[in-house]
Amino acid sequence: MTSRSTSSLLVSAVLLAALPAPGVAALGSESIVSMKIDPAEISVNVFYSGVTVHVEGTIPGGYDAAILCSGEEDSVALKRKGKVLGFLWMSVGDVVFEDVPSIYVLSTSSPLPDLAPPQVLEKLGVGYPALESRVVQSSEQTVLERDFEEFLKLKESENLYSYHEGGVKLEPGPSGTMRVSAECLLPTKTPWGEYEVRLFGFKAGIGELLRAEPLQVAPVGMTARVSNLAQNQGLLYGILAVIIALGVGLLTGLAFARMSKKGD
């Protein structure tokens, strides 16, 4: 253990008393921490088919790290499925989750329990259990035990949520630092908006948000134009869509009629 990190831990220990959640602290590592994301802006055009965001940075030696890429938070209305009359699978109730991130892609250098105690991870919002307690607490409705588990399955099936244990690579860097790197795969279904990539550091059960960088996902070109028209001028968009459909339909009809005439 370096003298720098030992002193960091001492400072952290002092700070702990003043913090609401034990183990969430400033580790005093500000000066040597860095993070770079590439690309920092994602343009969604007609050829967009998902993108891999490369995250690189430096953290103090001896730390574990977690890199979280998460999207804007919103409420999500869901329906539960269950058996009706003992054999028919149908909707059996509704539940609304509040403060749900649109995307949650987490990579860690070690298994979650090795990073910090659950209450520290919960405070930092690192890991599915942390996300669960936040989402369930904010819901105004009764949430069944299996609801969040099934919700995770749903999000994972769309590649919008994922957890990669060992997804953060740690390598020795200059002056006793560590180089961190991870890849954050954003699927084609990535909603547009402001994202944030966060780098967390963990040592001896204490965790800290070391860096956060914004990540912009925005439509460009035809994607942006069509989307704007659909959202802001719905009636005009609908009429245009019908006119073009009618035109293509009738022209094809005409073309086929001519072709069959020639064939006769």
């Binding site: 999500v76 209305a77 869901l78 329906k79 539960r80 499925k81 269950g82 054999f87 028919l88 699978w89 149908m90 909707s91 509704d94 539940v95 299996r146 609801d147 099934e150 919700f151 399955k153 749903l154 099936s157």
Partner: peptide, 15 residues
């Protein structure tokens, strides 16, 4: 769809 268990026991509303 009614008789086989669904892949997830939760779905987006309006789906």
């Amino acid at each position: 769809g009614l008789l086989l268990p669904p892949e997830t026991l939760i779905a987006y509303k309006g789906g």
